[in-house]
């Protein structure tokens, strides 16, 4: 599945989040293709899911599901939010 992570600059938090998500994907045996982008460039990029910090997620307008992550360092929490999508994909 293809996941976009978004932050203000596409350089810091979105990259960190993407690494965490890929790590979780591995654990579930899900092939995750991802890209970290800034708020100005997520639109029009095809993806199945978008993940961002809660503050950034508020500003995202899209038709795909958006995961709003409160604590970007809490892997367990990110995994919890991501799990339903990974499991669905694997069926």
């Amino acid at each position: 599945m293809r996941i976009l992570t978004v932050c203000g600059m596409g350089f810091g938090t979105s990259l960190m989040l993407l690494m965490t998500i890929k790590e979780i994907g591995k654990k579930y045996g899900a092939a995750i293709e991802g890209e970290a982008v800034d708020l100005g460039s997520y639109k029009g990029k095809p993806c199945d899911l978008i993940a961002a910090s809660g503050e950034i997620a508020k500003q995202i307008q899209t038709d795909v599901p958006v995961l709003a992550i409160k604590n970007l360092l809490n892997k367990a929490d990110i995994e919890e939010q991501l799990k339903p999508f990974l499991e669905k994909k694997g069926e």
Binding site: C7, G8, M9, T13, L39, S53, G54, E55, I56
Partner: peptide, 18 residues
């Protein structure tokens, strides 16, 4: 301009720029 999202976790900020 982008807001306080650099506060990544409770109590922790990671300011940065491009």
């Amino acid at each position: 301009s982008l807001g306080p999202y650099i506060v990544m976790a409770p109590g922790l900020a990671m300011p940065h720029a491009r």
